[in-house]
């Protein structure tokens, strides 16, 4: 029962770290001409679009089936932030997204450790 909760929490943490990577790349390219800001779809929409019975890739040699994970970055920039050299990264916007990622990651780890606590309480001998 609780194991699905652990899976959910670890998927949320994986989503947060994938998103963190994309945002860090955006920030690194804040002054690169022609760079377009990217982002990953939010966790809720990935969760809703995930098929109930999807083939899982458990080894590096496996071919991904459909939109595995849905963590592919897509272009996403705040409106009106494009500079004359074609760069669409806004540092303020990226900081906002980074704060959201931080919160998401903290929540995932919080849920994970709390679930483990509950499991441990269940099996502990008194």
């Amino acid at each position: 029962m609780n194991l699905s909760l652990l899976n959910l929490a670890s998927a949320l943490a994986a989503h947060a770290s994938a998103r963190q990577q994309v945002i860090a790349e955006n920030v690194a390219h804040a002054d690169t001409p022609g760079y377009r800001a990217r982002d990953v779809a939010d966790f809720a929409s990935i969760l809703e679009s995930a098929p109930a019975f999807a083939a899982r890739t458990t080894r590096p040699g496996h071919v991904a089936f459909g939109a595995e994970g849905g963590l592919e970055p897509h272009e996403a920039a705040a409106f009106g932030t494009e500079t004359p050299n074609g760069n669409s990264v806004s540092l303020e916007d990226q900081m906002l997204r980074a704060a959201a990622v931080r919160q998401e990651h903290d929540m995932a780890l919080g849920v994970y450790s709390k679930t483990l606590d509950i499991l441990r309480t269940t099996v502990a001998r008194r």
């Binding site: 943490a13 980074a98 931080r102 780890l109």
Partner: peptide, 27 residues
């Protein structure tokens, strides 16, 4: 000034990733 601002933004992202990794290891 602009380079300084961008450098600090990168540093902040680095620090956040480091903190996320260490809280993951904290588990």
């Amino acid at each position: 000034r602009e380079a300084n601002r961008s450098y600090e933004a990168n540093l902040k992202m680095f620090d956040q990733a480091r903190q996320m990794a260490s809280s993951l290891l904290g588990l």
